[in-house]
Amino acid sequence: MERDEPDTHGENDMTDAHDPIADYLARLERAAAELPDDVAAELVTDIRAHLDEVRHHDPGDARARQALDDLGTPETVVAAARAELVPDEAGAPVAPPAPPMAPRGGIGREILAFVLAVPGPVVAVVLARTVGGTAGSAPATLVLPPLLVLLAGWVLVWTSRWWNAGDKALATALWPFGFLLPLALWLVPTQTCTTMNGQEICEGFALAPAVGIGLFIALIVLVLGGTAWLFARASRRASDPGTAHARTTEQHAGSR
């Protein structure tokens, strides 16, 4: 079995500040700190064993300096170790990890998704009625076109590169249901009062006008705010290659 460390470190345990070998090893350790721990430890152990061998043959400083010269600077050695971490056998010039190839781009898909999901179905109904002539009022023509348009919008939402699953769920809920909410307020059964035998009998549930308007505005603000927030998130990520990369992998998992 392999051991990570030999039992002894030979003759180099002396820690003379002017010992060129000790200096070299200290520099090597510092430079190797950027490597994965196991790679760094192995490298330092190997170089130390190499220098132990040099010392063993000739303890003189002149020989030590020559040996260090032959090894190359610690930085050169660490750069070689870094290059070996890349699968590329040729040891290509040290490449920074994965240049941000992630597609930076616009948020056209997200905008189109909104257009299709919110005004889209309404436009589809209107178009179906005008273009469809007599067939335009058949239930199929009234339901199918807006549904298809909405589905197309949702497909765009869920294939967005810039939104994560949570964002996509929010977009799906807001578009179009969020926008229907303020409108749905008008459907709240109004209070109907009749006067019977001089007594006023009221049925249903009434919202004080102030509360109704307040709720309406709050819902509008909430829905528009959520929409703005989604677009802000998308456009921030679209211009940040770092997050773009993460989003891209998620998109591949989600849409393929």
């Binding site: 170089i47 190499h50 190359g72 050169t76 050695v77 070689a80 170790a81 070996e84």
Partner: peptide, 23 residues
């Protein structure tokens, strides 16, 4: 080559399973 750069190469050959080592 700088002699020191052979050790990273040996390390990679070991990680790739082409050589094995014993102290």
């Amino acid at each position: 080559i700088s002699e020191g750069t052979i050790y990273p190469l040996l390390s990679r050959l070991r990680r790739d399973g082409l050589v094995e080592t014993t102290w």
